[in-house]
Every structure is written in C-alpha cells, then in structure tokens.
Simulated scan of single mutants.
Amino acid sequence: MRLFYALLFPEHTLRELISIQNAINPYLYKGNATRKENLHLTLAFLGEQDEKLLPLLSSILDALPGKEIEVTFNHLGVFPKKGGDIIYTGIAYHQRLFQVQKTLIALLQEYHVVFKDTRFKAHVTLFRRAQYEEIPSFTPCISRASSIALMQSHRVRGILTYSPIYSKILQ
C-alpha cells in the first residue's frame, strides 16, 4: 500500500484552495489541477508499506497531539520538474504544525518504520505538470486543519485517489 500522513482541511478551506486554483488557471499553458478531494498537506510520505503495519501506523497517529492546528496559506511557489512544474501554496511557519510533523517523524523512527525522511516543506499541491509564463499573487488566507489522517494513494477507475484509512479529529 502506498501510504502517507496528511493534514486535512474543512470544506470551506477546500473551496478557498479551489478558488486559488481558478485564479492561477488562466496563467497556465498546461497543467493538471489537484482534485478538491485530494487537496491536503503531507506530513510524512511513507511510500509502499505492508498492510500488516496498519495497526502500528494507526497507533502512531493516535500518539500525536490532537490540538487544532492553524495554517496560513501565504504564498505560491514552484517545484521545478521535467515535463512541467508543481505549483503549490506555501504555508507560513506555525510552531504547532512543525512540532506535530517533527513528533511524527520521531515516532516513525522510534518504531523503525522504513520511509524516506525528506526535508519538510509545508505546502498544498495545486497543479502538477504545469507550464506557464508567470504565476499571479494571491491574498493570504487562514484556516484550521480539521484532522490528521493516514492516507492511501491509489487509483480508482484510473483516477488518482487519496483515501483516509485512519484519522484523528483535531480539536
């Protein structure tokens, strides 16, 4: 199973992210927008994992703090890629967000879960394979994450789908 941990957002935030996509779209020659259902902030990408690890991975999620996390979407950025860039909305530093992510990584390491630990860059991917001349600016917005989830990345009838396997509501 291809797995990752993600911060998920309430419906009104997803609508706001879609409106940012809609504002960027006229500037693109080409690009694949992230479907609303797939918009999230990745806390840790685990890659291919054995299904037998699901109880452990769920218990790690349970061990994370459950306090609400506020995020500020404050800029647009680009990860250059051959064949088209990734356009994302970046998130301002917020101590609770970065502490949760750091705790998650420490727990994964403590329980010897094998994954590629990369430098954390808080963002939400808006477009993949994007080609453009320029990217517009946008007005920053603030939201509160609604939950943290262990997610599966898979294809459903040929469509990339991110499905929550186990989640924890943030309060």
Rank of each mutant, 00 (worst) to 15 (best):
Y27L: 08
F79R: 07
F120R: 04
R15D: 14
A92I: 08
L14R: 13
E37S: 13
Y93M: 06
E48M: 02
M1T: 05
F9Y: 10
S143L: 11
F127Y: 15
Y5V: 01
P55T: 08
Y162R: 06
I20W: 04
F4K: 03
P140L: 02
T34I: 06
S143E: 07
Q109N: 14
R96Y: 00
I159E: 12
L160V: 06
V156Q: 05
C141N: 05
I159Q: 12
Y111K: 12
L76Y: 09
Y27F: 14
L97C: 02
I87S: 06
I105H: 03
L108S: 02
K81I: 01
Y162P: 07
P136Q: 09
L150S: 04
T42L: 05
N25V: 14
E51R: 01
H12E: 14
Y93T: 10
A130V: 09
H12R: 14
I159H: 10
K168C: 01
S19D: 11
E110S: 06
L170E: 03
A33R: 13
F98I: 12
Q131Y: 06
S58P: 10
Y29I: 10
A6E: 05
L56N: 07
R35L: 15
Y93W: 11
G84V: 07
L170W: 08
T161M: 03
K81N: 13
A149N: 04
A130L: 06
L64T: 13
S147F: 04
K102G: 00
K168T: 00
T13S: 15
K52T: 14
R96K: 09
A92F: 09
I87K: 05
K81V: 02
Y88A: 10
I87L: 09
T72L: 13
V113D: 01
E11F: 08
L97G: 02
